[in-house]
Amino acid sequence: MCPVLGHLDGRFESADAEAEHRIAVLYQEFGGPLLRHVRKSTGNDLQWAEDVVQETIVRAWRNSARLQWEPSLIWAWLLTVARRIVIDGRRRKSVRPQEVEPPEVDMMSVPDGSERALSAMVVADALRSLSQEHREVIEQTYLRDRTISEAAEILGIPPGTVKSRLYYGIRALREQLRDKGVAG
């Protein structure tokens, strides 16, 4: 399952064996949960998701000071590391024509009856309830795979303003979702 672990046969120096061991332990602890989460963002592309998990684990091992954090913080950090790797991959995979825009939230049709459709509608509702300024920066960054700088250029406002609006927008979105009972 993990190429990194392919050589636990004593040919390595002890430092390498130690590294292999630490990576194996990280896999054991976080590999499964990470894969379940990452698969959602790779559109169920399992091979891609496994690669992302592997890179996440290796980065975690390289930043071992952060592994001293409390478990909920380690987990939050690992999810963020993995998300970043997915986004990088997505950006590499697609050079999309700038003039073609994805559909607006309102245009997305979702079939009735599935849990996914339900939660997509709840999130869409929450997003619609935000102020225009807040909704806009969420749509123009994360939902379109754009960085703060790229979105700032498109919106014609300073990057610092995008960043700050994103902060308050995301906080407001979280409040909305919490009121709807779908956020912790």
Partner: peptide, 12 residues
Amino acid sequence: DGVAAYVLGVLD
């Protein structure tokens, strides 16, 4: 305030 952009992975 960078924490939101960070968690979304949209920082340079």
